[in-house]
């Protein structure tokens, strides 16, 4: 049973393209309400499983191979907030779009938190190993079509109700799959950042002088 902690308001603001804007009193109250709603509707779950490397099916593409270089194992993980958060956002869109946008952002914050918890647990299981940051289908040249492979490897549809559709989108939508490399030796962290991102040419965060946090 995973319990979510406080969801950062400034993170949520960033997802809404409002980084740096100081919310007024009315907006602050709405942010708090939306945080509480997401916490109430989320049923956070994660799964992970260790794969032995090399694994060509798992490491499909140059970027993921580079990411896992030097690692003898990889932790495949997935996380979800469950179907109810999707429904909450869907229902709210009917009556209050502004609130729906806010809920959507808090849900993004929440699912990242679930991933962090999964990572912490993996790290605790492998105290002798160094871990890379998590790498997801859709980053670099790591194809989205790998979603099905990762989910099947984890038995995620049956165990936590997480599946992908024909276009490789995760359902429930507030979910993540990722691969993190495990190595016996310190890893040169190729830090996440704009340099490795395919969207850097036309990114709304960068346009406003910001950064997505990746």
């Amino acid at each position: 049973m995973i319990t979510l902690g406080h969801l950062s308001h400034s993170e949520a603001m960033r997802y809404m393209g409002g980084a740096g804007i100081e919310p007024d009193e009315r907006m602050s109250a709405m942010l708090s309400e939306c945080e509480a709603l997401v916490l109430r509707h989320a049923s956070p779950k994660f799964l992970y499983r260790i794969a032995e490397l090399p694994d060509d099916e798992l490491a499909a593409g140059n970027d993921i191979k580079a990411h896992l270089s030097g690692c003898d194992k990889a932790a495949v993980l997935c996380a979800t907030l469950g179907a109810d958060v999707d429904k909450l956002i869907r229902v709210t869109q009917v009556s209050d779009m502004a609130r729906a946008v806010m809920l959507n952002s808090f849900a993004n914050v929440a699912v990242e938190q679930v991933c962090d918890k999964a990572e912490q647990e993996i790290a605790a299981q492998y105290p002798d190993r160094y871990m890379t940051f998590r790498y997801s289908p859709g980053y670099g040249d790591y194809p989205l079509s790998l979603q099905k492979t990762l989910l099947t490897f984890l038995d995620a549809p049956r165990k936590i109700g997480l599946s992908a559709n024909e276009n490789h989108l995760l359902i429930p939508s507030k979910s993540v799959t990722a691969v993190a490399g495990l190595s016996l030796y310190p890893i040169e962290q190729k830090r996440q950042g704009c340099a490795v991102c395919q969207l850097r040419g036309d990114c709304s965060y960068r346009r406003n002088g910001g950064h997505c946090g990746f």
Binding site: M13, M16, G17, G18, G20, I21, P23, M27, M30, D96, M97, A98, R99, V101, M102, N208
Partner: peptide, 14 residues
């Protein structure tokens, strides 16, 4: 101009 963020824009629209 990035002085108003999306939910406010939507609330005004609503």
């Amino acid at each position: 101009k990035n002085t108003i963020f999306l939910p406010q824009l939507i609330q005004s629209a609503n």
